[in-house]
Design a protein around this nucleic acid. Structure first.
Lengths: 330, 330
DNA sequence: CTGTTAGCGCCTTCAT
DNA sequence: ATGAAGGCGCTAACAG
């Protein structure tokens, strides 16, 4: 293996100069730099990051904690993270927690062992900043909720859901059922809040009988929709708290011969790529997944590198995407 | 920061013994081990992986090179990889190449710099083992094609596609169009081969006029399907080389008022989670994505750890999943 | 602008 | 079964 010593020898310089030529080129004479570069070429040198890491006590890597990498929304957030990390010279570890506390703890431990310089958490923030207070390393939430402490990134979940409900109300719907996420899930809570607000503002009472709690999976969307369609009077619209459940709902409606949007309007949340191509195309709330990941990554790296980071919550803009599934009723 | 020296002091032992107690417990007296553990607890010690890595010249991490992490199939393969890596004490870096040669080279370089001990490549193998021959580190393909060298993992793409085409032929279809991937894409090539074989075995001629090349995206499925539906006589079935294009095709057919499967049968490939929940539910070929990633990861770690790995190509079983989209015709 | 030198924290001989 | 000591490859003071 060729080391920095070989380069120094070949160039007739000290290892310190070679090191500087690489990591702080401006501190080295132009001519010297060229000599270093030639020597590197000649001996076919590649810096050993393991040594750099130990010496600098940094891993130059980040850990993304994600409840499930196969979830398209999280995958998009991760892509945004990776993109910024790449630009700034960091690598991205993925830690798929599969909602298991054991796995999450394992990953927390590995960061304490210096595997990574910080964590980007994609799970919603159940524990407020409990976890953060405990941690000896920086953590940034990329998909925060209303309770998430700064610095973090989120969208206005409640506001977005309120707008979506208002869209349905404006189209004449009065009996709008909701397919929410797990009862304790912070995103589900925020979004459900927006749904209630819209109903109340419109003078429509909130009726728990037409609210179901799924688990954000398509299967749970199918079940909830079946269930709701058996009700009398039947809801005329289904407000789903993510796209997967909406896609499941559409399938369930088709299975019982109901037309979307003719008989029942359906809306989603996230705008994953499949939303635009479902049949019918899904009306949904677009979250800027990529930008959320990118921003969270910026914040984390700034914090790691000791830059002053504004202690603020970055609320990124969402956007209603009206497609076919929300109407008009036939 | 507390180091192994602090533990040694607290336990009244040498650092060597502490190190051994941790990495080779059987070489240390039971009683001594207990003392070490107590000391670790007491001084709140966590091993520094950066130091271990330098000392052992290993990163204990793997790099997954993936063309796009947002692709559900690749995300599932990645989940399989992560799962095995976790069990065996390795971490997983993700390198999203976005089909950019620059990014791929960047990641290759970082592995040469010891960022990772080996690579799992999810892109199909265009370069045969060109890349591998050049590399100074092990590479395993998790989604190989017929040309991929061992050790690697793949399914029988041609065979699977032949079976799917035969399924359509058995249902009475004679004019079966294909929506393939990019012309040079090895998976597309293998699958197209299976399609031709089935046609020829059934005495139906291969007709390039009803074959389109998409890029595996839903949008390209939409375009190709529109195009094919304008033909006279109209194909009665659309064999798509992945699920995304099939989902796009279904949408395009609905848009022009054609019923699936009543007017046109549609099939996909991969069995991503959305296939089961499209409307109508998609007939497809299930690839064992998780197992492919897991197996590839086993092979790579074995190779890294110097275990004898069988120089063989692991062809994992696929499975035809017949759902609604493939018929029967009405 | 360049060189000398001292470790970063750990593991692994080698010796006892 | 345990201890002493060297060194992995690099960078950051500190000198010059």
């Amino acid at each position: 293996m060729t080391t920095i010593i070989d380069v120094a020898k070949a160039a007739g310089l000290s290892t310190a100069t070679v090191s500087r030529a690489l990591s702080a080129p401006e501190k080295v004479a132009k001519e010297t730099r060229a000599r270093v570069m030639r020597a590197i070429e000649k001996v076919d040198y590649r810096p050993n990051m393991l040594a750099r890491n130990l010496r600098s006590d940094r891993a130059f890597s980040l850990l993304v904690l994600v409840p499930g990498i196969a979830n398209p929304f999280f995958a998009n957030v991760t892509a945004g993270i990776e993109s910024v990390a790449w630009q700034r010279g960091y690598s991205v570890f993925i830690g798929d927690t599969r909602d298991s506390r054991e796995r999450e703890e394992h990953y927390e431990r590995s960061v304490e062992m210096r595997l990574a310089d910080g964590v980007i958490q994609l799970s919603p923030d159940y524990g407020f900043d409990e976890q953060r207070r405990r941690a000896s390393y920086p953590i940034v939430h990329a998909c925060g909720c209303e309770l998430t402490a700064a610095p973090s990134v989120r969208i206005d979940n409640a506001g977005a859901m309120r707008e979506m409900a208002e869209h349905l109300i404006a189209a004449g719907h009065r009996r709008i059922a909701a397919i929410s996420g797990p009862e304790q899930n912070p995103h589900a809570i925020d979004r459900l809040k927006g749904y209630r607000e819209a109903l109340e503002l419109a003078g429509i009472g909130y009726d728990p009988a037409i609210v179901r709690h799924g688990d954000f999976s398509m299967g749970s969307g199918v079940e909830a929709a079946k269930d709701l369609m058996a009700l009398t009077p039947r809801p005329t619209a289904l407000l789903c708290m993510n796209d997967e459940m909406a896609i499941g709902a559409i399938q369930a409606l088709a299975a019982v011969g109901l037309d979307v949007p003719g008989d029942v309007a359906v809306t989603g949340f996230d705008d994953i790529s499949f939303a635009a191509h479902s049949t019918p195309a899904l009306t949904t709330v677009a979250q800027p997944a990529d930008a959320m990941g990118a921003k969270a990554c910026e914040l984390l790296i700034d914090e790691i590198e000791g830059k002053e980071v504004e202690e603020k919550v970055h609320v990124l803009p969402h956007r209603l995407v009206i497609r076919e599934s929300s109407g008009p009723p036939r």
